[in-house]
Structure formats: C-alpha cells, structure tokens
Design a protein around this nucleic acid. Structure first.
Lengths: 203, 203
DNA sequence: TAACGTAGAGAACGGTGGTTCTCACGTCAA
DNA sequence: TTGACGTGAGAACCACCGTTCTCTACGTTA
C-alpha cells in the first residue's frame, strides 16, 4: 500500500474514532482495525500515539477552518457584505451542530482529556483556537468594527460549541447568532451615534 | 477511621487529582495514596471508579454553585441591584480563573474525556450546566429582563471558561463581562425605549 | 532461480490500572 | 478467653494498551 494512502487512511480512522469516543478510549489496535493499516506500518508513519493525535488535530484544524471559510465567504449564500459574513459564522455553527456525528469541539474535548498531561496536544488546541480567533478578527476588521467585538464573538462561538455538545442540540448556535447580532448592532451604533438603535433582538 | 471522614478525604483527593490531571490519568492507587484511605475502604465507599467520579462531580457542583451564589448575592460587594448581581457573575468568574490551580471547567473537561463513553458522567455534566443556566435565568428574571438574555449570558460564561483554560488567562472573564453589559443594555433599552442607549462598551 | 528486502498478521512484552484477595492484627461480644 | 468481625497493607489477578518482535509470504532484481 502506498505510504501516502496509508497515512490518509490512518488519519481517517483516527479522526472517526478519536472524535467519536475520545482519545484514551481508543487503542492503537482499534485504529489498525478501522484503517486496515498494519501495526508495523502505523508505527512507521507515527512513531507514537501522541504524534498520531497531534496529526489528527492538525489535519482536522485545516479542514475545519477551510469548511468554515468556504461557507462564510461564499457569495451565493448571500454573504455579500462583511456584517453578513460575520453572522454567517453562526449559521455555519448551526449546520455543524446538526451533523449526526457532532460530538462537540474536537479541540475542547482533547484539551479536557489531555491538556494537562500532553504539552503537544495542548499546543495544538491553543493553535487552533488562536487561528479561529484571528479569523473572527479579520471578519470583524473587514466590517470596520473594533477588535474588542471579535473577542466577544469568539466567546459566544466557544460557548455555543460547548453548550450544543452538552445539551445535544443545535439551538445554541442560533442563540449565539442573536447575541452576536445584538453586539454588532451595539458596536455599530456606538460608532455612528446618529444611528437609531434599531431592534437588537429577534431573528 | 470514621466512614464519613474517609469519604470526605477520598473526595478531597479525587477532586484535586481528577481536576488537576484529568480523570483517566489518575489511578485508584493514586487516590489511595493521596487520601490515606485504603483500597478496601475505597471500594466499600465507591464500588467502582465511575461512582467516585460521579460523586466528585456532584460535590463539586454543590460547592461551585454555592460559592458563586455567595459572591453574587453578597450585598457588601456592592451587588445591591439585580443588574449588578448579573454582572457580578463575570467578576466571580475572573476570580475563579485567577486561582492558581484553575484548569478550566471540571464538567467541560469531564465531558470531553468521558461524555461519549459514560452516561452517568454525561448526565452529571448536563445537570450541572442546566443548574448554572437556571441560576442565570433567575438573576435575569429578577432584573426584569427577558429569558432570552439568560441563555446568551450563559453562552458567554461557557465561552469564557473554555477560553480562559486554553489561553491560561483570566482576561476572558472581563471580556465576557463587557459583552454581557452590552447585551444587558441592549435588552434594557429595547424594553423601555425612552432610555438612552448609553455606552454599551467599555469597562 | 536465488538471494534479498519488505510487508502483513499477529504473538509477545512490559507496564499499568481497576478490582479482588490474603493475611495479620485489633476489637468487641458472649 | 475465644471466636467472629472489620480493618489496613499490600500482593495478586486479570484485562488492556502501547510498542516491538517474529515469522511467513511475496515481489524484485541480478
């Protein structure tokens, strides 16, 4: 089997299993069984389980942020102006939460499980969250809104992920979207104080 | 040794170790060593590790919510009106985040680690988050504000916990507090439209 | 064809962890 | 006093897991 193919199959299996059942609940033998990659090959590709975990988080990070950006920046979804793109983040979260295998944020979960005992895993989580925060920062900046708002929207998004996972519901995404809209309106009206305050709530 | 004392010592050790290093990284022998309670006694008190985990989460839930309520409802801290009490939640979060052994939300961490493989643990997490959300709901109601706001503040608080843990910083609490104030102002002004919109940002 | 390198299957190894068992000891009731 | 009982210390048991090793089969190349 080609080495690159084996690597992808390994990461596919690792992602499904680690994300679905937690990292420590999954043995290397489970990954071998699910991937069809022999144990020997597995250890050639990833000399230790921790490196497989890091690779899983890395690849998922790239894909996750790409999927988000594709949705947010797709003009055919009606995200033409910067403000709509900002709110589209929360629409995308709602779609993600509704996926049948949704089980919370992979990085938050990994951090809870291994953040205290594995520095490489903790670093991956920090890197992912920083990248997500910076993406929000760029969207906020494009909308001509202050950086403070980006940090606040980041908290709403994180809170929505946690709450959606625990409550097994996609509703927190919509709730976070309404809060985001209220905050955006508040910041917009404080910029240009002649604006009426509008309706900060509601769909 | 008195049974009740042994139980408390066991839970003390369990709390320190589980919270500090994660649940699966801590063995029953570690708990025996840290508590001074023999393995035999340990298994008399908690017939399986999972039951010890649930008891740890239960006791911590009671104490955590009590500490929060004591801070929020203490008039000497200047929390005389309902709106101030609402904002005090985020001050309290900041204090919690600054504690030297802070390592995120015990329930979020436990959920990431065991939520997928242990229904009793997942139930504990859901119960704790529901109780916290209901407490926020009561505070919001006392302030004469709509229930929707409570849900939004809940998301901010959860996001602050996650972000503070990952970034190892107490700053997310203050950020969440500013966002909370903006949301409260927005909801207040939409209620009584004669109110000036005030300054929704800032400290 | 023969020697060789490689890959896969799965056994083996060393360590760990949850749980139970043994055994010696102290305590209390009859 | 004696016997039943509860206790603590720690060994023992058993399963699992990360990792390595063995062995066999097969394809490649000189």
């Amino acid at each position: 089997m080609d080495s690159a193919v084996a690597r992808e199959q390994t990461l596919d299996a690792a992602e499904t299993l680690f994300y679905g059942r937690g990292i420590q609940s999954v043995g290397m033998d489970d990954i071998r069984g699910a991937s069809g990659v022999s144990l020997k090959r597995l250890y050639q590709l990833f000399p230790a389980k921790e490196q497989l975990v890091v690779a899983y988080l890395e690849r998922r990070d790239l894909r996750w942020r790409q999927r988000l950006a594709e949705y947010v920046e797709n003009p055919s979804d009606g995200h033409e102006d910067a403000r709509q793109r900002l709110l589209a983040v929360f629409d995308w979260l709602a779609r993600w939460f509704r996926e049948p295998d949704f089980r919370g944020c992979a990085w938050i979960n990994s951090y809870g499980e291994l953040g205290a005992v594995s520095e490489p895993v903790a670093d991956q989580v920090r890197a992912h969250k920083r990248a997500f925060g910076e993406y929000l920062g760029r969207l906020v900046d494009d909308a001509g809104l202050p950086a403070e708002l980006a940090g606040q929207l980041h908290l709403l998004a994180e809170g929505a992920m946690v709450t959606a996972a625990v409550e097994r519901s996609a509703e927190p995404a919509a709730r976070a979207g309404r809060a985001a809209r209220a905050l955006i309106d508040a910041y917009s009206s404080s910029d240009r104080s002649s604006d009426p305050n509008g309706v900060p709530v509601g769909h």
